[in-house]
Write a protein that binds this DNA or RNA. Structure first.
Lengths: 341, 341
DNA sequence: CTGTTAGCGCCTTCAG
DNA sequence: CTGAAGGCGCTAACAG
C-alpha cells in the first residue's frame, strides 16, 4: 500500500500553511508567484493530489457527473457516452456511469439514488417516468437528457423524430411505393417516446399520400437486430406483404435485411428498406437511413451542463434540436413493376 | 436546492446517537432489532443517504471503481464496460469511467491520475506501457486488465489470441487456400499486444502449411471499418491478390467485405473472409469469425476485483483465459477453381 | 499576501 | 447494546 501525501505534508515541506497550499494548487488568487512555484514543485515531488472526498466534503462540490444509460454496449448509447465523457473530463469532471438496462438495476437506482450527494449534475440517456423524474429533480443539481420530451427541470437535447420519420416515409412514397410497412420499437417499460412519435409521422405521411393504413404492415422489432429480423419475417407473412419498409432504427433495419436474405428476396429490387440513425455500419452495408448526429447530442448536452455548472447565472435552454438528414444509399428504389403491388 | 438529511437528523428523529444510526444502516452488529427497525424507518422517511464523500473520508474506502477504456463507443469496449458495470453495481460499487482514446486524454490521465484516492480498484481496458503500469500500481489498489500480457500487479483476463488466430488461418488453409492475406491492426501508441500475437500465429500457420509468406499480402486496417476497407483495397492491388483474408477484427472484416462489393467480387465465391471477435452484427452479415466471449471477460474481471476487495486474503489469479471458438458462417469457402491462384 | 479557526458528515475507537 | 469523542483531509471564512 503506497502512502499518499496529504496537504499538510506539502505545507510542511514548503514552510507555509495548508490554506496557502490549497489556494496555490487550485490557482486561486492571493498567493505570490514565488511561493506558488515552490508549492507546485513540492507537491509534484511528493506526488500529491488532493483527496476528492475531503475537498467535496469541505466545498460541497463533487466534480463528478452522473451519467445514466440503459445499455452502454449499444452503439447509440456508447457513442453518446463517449462524446459526453470527453467534454466532461476536459472540463475537469469525472463521470460516474450507471447502467440501468434491467428493470432491477433501474429500480435499485431510483430508490437508493446512489448519485445523491455524489454528483454535481446528471445526464440521462433514458426517459424517466414521472416518479423517476421527480427523484432526479430532488437531487437539486442541473439535469440534462438526450432523449424524450422536454420536461421541467431538464435540458433536453435531441432531434425532431417526427420530421425524421416523415422524410423516411415520404422518401418511400416518392419512389412510388404504396404498400409501406413499418418496423417499430416498443416503448414498453423504457418509456421511450421516439417510437410513438415516429409512428405518428408514419401514419400522417400515409394519410397525406392518400394511402390506407394496414395494421398488418406494422410489426414490433424491439430495437434489436433479432427483433428486426422477426418483425420482417412477420411482415412477409402478410397476405399482401409490403414493397418497402421503414425501420425505426438501423439495427432493426439490419435484422430486416437478414430476414430478406433468408427469404431470397433482393434489396432493393424486391423490397426497399430505410432505417433510422446512421449507425456506424450503415455505410458499410449500404443502408439508406435517416442520419442523426449521435456524438453531437452527447457533446452538446454535456457542454450545456458544464456551462450551467460554471456560470450558474445562465439559464440553460429547455430544448435543443439537432438536424437530421436523409442519407441515400443502396437499399431503397422504386417498386419492382414485375411484382404484385 | 433540496436540503438533504444528514446522519444527525436521523439520530435526532430516532432519539439515538449518530454512531448507532451509522451501525444500524450499514448492517453492522451491535444494534437491537427494534432500534434498527426504527432507524431504518426514520431514514427512509427523511430520504437519508450517507454522503459518500464523508464516509470515504472517514473510512478510507470509496466504493468506486475506476474503469479506463480507449473508446466506449466501440462495440468491444462498450460491451465489456456494460458487463463490468453490472457486476460492480450489484456489489455496491459505483463506476468512474475514463475515456482515454486521444493521446491527450491519456497523458492527462496518467500524469494527473484523477483516480488517486478516488477508487478502490481499477479495471483497465487498455494496455498500459511500463510507465503507465507503474502509475497504476502506485495507486495501491487492486488492478485488473482485459487486454494485454500478464504483468505483475495486474489480474489479466483475456483470450488466447494466438490460438484464435491460428484457428482462423488454419481454417483457410484447410479449405485449400494458398494465397492467404491478413488485415491487421497497428499496435501503435495504444500498445496493443493482440496484433503482434495474431500476426505471429498467422506466420506460424503459413509456415507449418509450407506456404511462403508474401509481405504484399499484409495490410494495416487500424481496427476500424474504413481501415479494413482501405486495407482490402490495397490487397486487391497486389500483383497476385489473396484468395482468402484473415481480418484481425470483425470491424475490419466488414470494411473488407465492403471493398470487395465495390470491386464486384463475390464472397465467398471469389474471396473468403474470416474475422475475429464475433461482433453483434457478424451474425447479421453472415461473417465467419473467431468468437470470443466479450461480455464474459468484463464480468469475469469485475468479479475478480470485487472478490479481492471483499476478501483481501484471497490472492487473485494473475491470468485467466476464456475460451474462443470458430464460428462458421457464410464468408469462407474453398478457393474458386476458375480464378487464378 | 498568508495564517488561524472551524467545520463539512461520517466512521471508528473506546467507554460504559 | 449504545453513546461520546476524535479525526479523516480539505476548504472557507476571518483575521492579520
Amino acid at each position: 500500500m503506497t502512502v499518499t501525501a496529504s496537504i499538510t505534508d506539502v505545507a510542511r515541506a514548503t514552510g507555509v500553511s495548508a490554506s496557502t497550499v490549497s489556494r496555490a494548487l487550485r490557482g486561486r488568487p492571493g498567493v505570490s508567484v514565488e511561493v506558488r512555484a515552490r508549492i507546485v514543485e513540492a507537491a509534484a515531488a511528493l506526488g500529491y493530489t488532493a483527496s476528492r472526498s475531503a475537498s467535496s466534503l469541505a466545498s460541497g462540490r463533487t466534480f463528478s457527473i452522473g451519467v445514466i444509460v440503459p445499455y452502454v454496449g449499444r452503439w447509440f448509447f456508447g457513442t453518446v457516452v463517449d462524446a459526453a465523457e470527453h467534454v466532461f473530463s476536459a472540463a475537469g469532471y469525472d463521470v460516474l456511469l450507471y447502467n440501468l438496462g434491467s428493470p432491477d438495476a433501474r429500480k435499485r437506482f431510483f430508490t437508493k439514488l446512489p448519485v445523491r450527494k455524489r454528483v454535481d449534475a446528471v445526464l440521462s440517456l433514458l426517459v424517466p417516468d414521472d416518479d423517476e423524474a421527480d427523484a432526479l429533480r430532488s437531487l437539486g443539481v442541473p439535469l440534462a437528457a438526450i432523449v424524450g420530451e422536454p420536461r421541467p427541470g431538464f435540458t433536453v437535447v435531441g432531434i425532431d423524430d417526427r420530421a425524421g420519420a416523415q422524410s423516411a416515409v415520404r422518401h418511400l412514397v416518392n419512389l412510388g411505393h404504396r404498400r409501406i410497412g413499418m418496423i417499430s420499437g416498443d416503448s414498453g417499460p423504457q418509456h421511450w417516446t421516439a417510437p410513438v412519435r415516429r409512428r405518428q409521422a408514419y401514419l400522417d405521411v400515409l394519410s397525406d399520400a392518400g394511402l390506407a393504413h394496414d395494421p398488418a404492415l406494422e410489426a414490433d422489432g424491439g430495437y434489436t437486430v433479432e427483433g428486426g429480423e422477426r418483425a420482417m419475417t412477420e411482415l412477409l407473412a402478410a397476405s399482401r406483404p409490403p414493397t418497402a419498409v421503414f425501420a425505426q432504427s438501423d439495427e432493426m433495419a439490419m435484422g430486416a435485411l437478414r430476414a430478406l436474405r433468408l427469404h431470397r428476396l433482393r434489396v432493393p429490387d424486391d423490397v426497399s428498406i430505410i432505417g433510422f440513425d446512421n449507425h456506424e455500419l450503415a455505410d458499410v452495408i449500404g443502408l439508406t437511413t435517416i442520419a442523426q448526429p449521435v456524438a453531437a447530442q452527447g457533446a452538446q448536452a454535456a457542454g450545456l451542463l458544464v456551462r450551467q455548472l460554471e456560470h450558474a447565472r445562465l439559464a440553460p435552454p429547455a430544448h435543443v434540436q439537432l438536424p437530421i438528414r436523409l442519407e441515400l444509399r443502396d437499399t431503397t428504389a422504386p417498386p419492382n413493376p414485375r411484382r404484385p403491388q
